[in-house]
């Protein structure tokens, strides 16, 4: 049982995609989760529902609409074409954009839970000591929510690694560009290369298990430090 160069390439592409998506989501979802945790606005319900959509929708549905929107005749795709940009479907960038939406709830929800559990009194105390909104967030909210950040980052990363349907719909199957591990496994099975499918699947299985084990066993200890 060994991994072929194509398998290794698929694994690295998968890790690259998951890393890029996690970083982008960290930047996008943190302010969104903060807003959702603090707001009493009426639009909170609508936004929450949109964020949670990828949890219930089949990934193919999501992928299908992305394909339509980003294709040359789509709203976004047409606009991009007019600006002289490359269309997103069947590119790595396209995969990133689709995955950001697909993994959004996995980043937003743990962060939102952590922010909602924050003691607002501590933020008030920090304001009273002269800390601006941003300084309060960085020095009080982030360190006190680090368990939430850890969970959100790991879940987003692992979930993006496990993505299949959206990738297939929007990214196709281009080696080194959009052929991630899950698609590579699918190809092996289609070609009846069961040993190779098995090798790559085992890597994914062990990796996912170790990560989840880390979350469920190390997190309580981590929490105690707080």
């Amino acid at each position: 049982m060994h991994l072929s160069p194509a398998d290794i390439q698929a694994i690295f592409l998968t890790l690259k995609l998951a890393s890029v998506v996690t970083v982008i989501l960290l930047l996008l979802a943190t302010p969104l989760a903060w807003w959702l945790a603090r707001t009493s606005s009426k639009s909170k319900g609508v936004i929450s529902a949109v964020v949670a959509l990828p949890l219930v929708l089949p990934p193919t549905v999501l992928g299908f609409y992305f394909l339509l929107a980003m294709g040359p005749n789509g709203v976004i795709g047409g606009l991009m074409q007019q600006l002289g940009w490359q269309a997103l479907p069947f590119t790595f960038a396209g995969l990133v954009v689709a995955s950001v939406f697909y993994s959004l709830p996995f980043m937003v929800q743990p962060l939102q839970n952590a922010f909602e559990a924050l003691d607002k009194n501590l933020l008030d105390a920090a304001a009273n000591l002269g800390a601006s909104v941003m300084h309060r967030f960085v020095t009080i909210a982030v360190p006190l929510s680090r368990a939430g950040f850890l969970t959100a980052i790991i879940l987003t990363f692992v979930h993006t690694i496990g993505e299949f349907g959206v990738v297939l719909m929007i990214g196709g199957n281009i080696p080194g560009v959009t052929r991630v591990a899950s698609v590579q496994i699918y190809d092996h099975v289609e070609a009846l290369e069961y040993m190779q499918a098995h090798a790559l699947s085992a890597v994914m299985l062990v990796f996912s298990f170790v990560v989840l084990l880390f979350i469920y066993t190390l997190r309580p200890a981590h929490k105690n430090i707080n």
Partner: peptide
Amino acid sequence: VPVHLRRIGMVFQDSRIFPH
């Protein structure tokens, strides 16, 4: 004037010491 620019110190019944 926002709280953080007032330079008015406050001590609360629950000390609100930052736990971390």
